[in-house]
Amino acid sequence: MDSITILLKCAIASGTSILFAAVAEVITERSGVLNLGLEGIMLVGAFSGFLVAHQTGSLALAVVAAFLFGAVFGLIHALLTVIMRANQVVSGLSITILGGAVASFFGKSLVGQTAVSFTNFKIPYFSEIPIIGAFFDQNGLVYLSYLFVILAAVFLFKTKYGLYLKVIGESPETADSMGLSVVKYRLFATIIGSGFAAVGGAYLSLADTPSWMDHMTGGRGWIAIAIVIFAAWNPVYAAFGAYLFGGLVALQFRLQAFGYDVNIYFLKMLPYIITLLTLTIFSSKKFRKIYGPIASLGIPYDRESK
């Protein structure tokens, strides 16, 4: 394999956890709900996935458990913000604090333990193609993430329900007068989104660095939220954004491995600097005309106040 293919392969592998979270957040935000709890929810997913893998030895059960635990935290956020119309920023931050603490509290005995983890399997013939082959020499969870991106894109852009979800995000009043249940769609989008974000967390503890550590997400949840913006709420662009960041992480290790004298602290802050710079470019008026934000994002819907 040539070095570009290797780099791409590593970029995909280390970008997948952010991919799950970012694409999940695209679905949630499209409904008009901002979920700033991603970082905490990913930690819950990383912890619960690892716990179940450690106890049962089943990776499938581990991923399902991560999804369910994440969905429970999504349910809390949805109940607070959609039903009880609480402030979405405060609720999201509370979820991040609670999720991180729950994972750290119950995960204490798991530190240093081992569990089954995902291993790579090559897809015959496809993995031999130069460059593109990088996509086909990955583990099962990465293949699942491809499916997730495709399903999310098809749901949003090709189905009736996806269209309804977008209408709710852009104009809940219109959706309401069409007879759509704003509450149901927002609950659905928040719960499902949180479930998949948690799978992104589980990817870290089951595939990326198979182990459980406190705060092992290291800010990936926040990067995912930023990616959603410059991906213009499009799941496919969000996936590319995630791979870009995966590439940065992969590059860090490459450069060090090749003995380049690059300051590790500089490399560590690079993803955040690049996120900031990318957001700067995408916030400019020129881009804003093309990529408008979701109109009702962050605003609770109250039928009577209209």
């Binding site: 109940l79 405060v90 609720s91 509370s94 604090i97 609670l98 991180g100 509290f105």
Partner: peptide, 17 residues
């Protein structure tokens, strides 16, 4: 030590609700 975070989280969620 994470018990403090749990208490904070619980407190805020109940107050928000």
């Amino acid at each position: 030590s994470s018990i403090i975070g749990m208490f904070q989280g619980i407190l805020f969620i109940t107050i928000l609700g």
